[in-house]
Write a protein that binds this DNA or RNA. Structure first.
Lengths: 210, 210
DNA sequence: TAATTTTTGAACTGTTTGGTTATATATCGG
DNA sequence: CCGATATATAACCAAACAGTTCAAAAATTA
């Protein structure tokens, strides 16, 4: 039952750490950082109060763990959406579709932990994390654009840096509109149109390919 | 000294209501809604605690007043930026420049009350207000686009609705990046490039004008 | 079964919060 | 100058909060 692990000595935990973190994510996402009380977290995570402190540290530490896990998972999905499809068009559309889907997934409050709740947390470490995450997202998109240039999908003078940050900005906009309650269907449609926009050729260039 | 107004009977106020509201805006903007305590507001507004309650109501009511005043002022400036310039290019560039400037103005925390702090307030009235404000912004931009179509600046099949919400999304993205500490100079440059993007002709169309 | 180790549940604590209530003070009408 | 009216100062209050303590409980090893 515990193949690789020696069973620890004392009373076993009544909760799964990973699951508890996911539940904490839901709580923070729906109530915000300040809005989520320890009681909310205790209730939502199915973990006793002292266990919460002994296992996850204080509220701030817990939030950072939740944020990191969330960002890692979301980043991995975004990278997959970006690099798995063969065509750039599908990559960009998939990137935006993924943003809409995570921002409107059922069973969770609309919006995004990274884009809608974390920015309001008054904490230097959180702010730095968000900066890095944003820079990472833009870098990923830039790389995908450069791959597409190498593959001849878009012309070599495609404005990689500008379009990359614009794509990320558009994705942020979709996420914020999701948080405002805009229906997923509308946003998915807007995501498609946004994908078309960022792939448009520059002024004065002939349209490169279909 | 009081031209149109009968001087009230009792002890005169030691503060100006309008000024106090503006100072409250600064407090909410820098600390967020939950983060701003009544003591913060009292200190920042230069108003005594009971005066705050008797004049502005409770914290929530005060925030709504602040939000409405802020939105009105910002909306007016945005409309001016949008409708004053003769060319559409200048309008769109001005709209985005205005967003960057208000989000990075000195003497105030970076970001925007409407886009960065209000969305986190867990209040139905606030949420509805934000929805309406966002819809209003998109409607303004759409109208400007239609004016430009009438003026022959852009072709009649310009995707007005899509480009309008994309422009607003891009402006939101710029604002959020401002809040993350991105320097004004970078954002102003990105604003220009974003303006170019949303004015790009659709696929398969010849570029309409210089 | 007895000793040990760890988690759990409940009650507790000091602080901070939003909001109120005296009480003193400043201005106006007469 | 005196009463009426409105504002300001400061102390106050109950509720909610983050974080802790402690004994009971559940598992281990021997």
């Amino acid at each position: 039952m515990f193949p690789n692990t020696v069973r620890p000595r004392g009373r076993p935990r009544s909760f799964d750490e990973r699951q508890a973190l996911e539940k904490a994510t839901l709580v923070f996402r729906s109530k915000g950082y300040d809005g989520a009380t320890i009681d909310d977290l205790v209730a939502g995570m199915g973990v006793g109060r002292p266990s919460l402190y002994s296992v996850f540290g204080d509220k701030r530490t817990l939030f950072l763990r939740v944020l990191r896990a969330y960002a890692e998972a979301k980043g991995a999905r975004a990278a997959k959406a970006l690099f798995a499809p063969p065509t750039l068009r599908d990559s960009v559309a998939g990137f935006l579709r993924h943003a809409v889907e995570t921002a409107t997934e059922e069973g969770s409050a609309p919006g995004c932990l990274i884009e809608c709740v974390a920015p309001l947390v008054d904490d230097a470490e959180v702010k730095q994390f968000l900066k890095d995450a944003a820079a990472g997202a833009v870098a990923f998109v830039e790389r995908r654009f450069r791959d597409a240039i190498s593959a001849g999908e878009i012309p070599p003078d495609f404005p990689v840096a500008a379009r990359a940050s614009q794509l990320v900005d558009l994705s942020r906009g979709l996420t914020m509109r999701a948080q405002m309650g805009m229906p997923r269907k509308t946003l998915l449609n807007d995501a498609k149109e946004a994908a078309e926009l960022v792939l448009l050729p520059r002024r004065g260039k002939a349209t490169p390919e279909g």
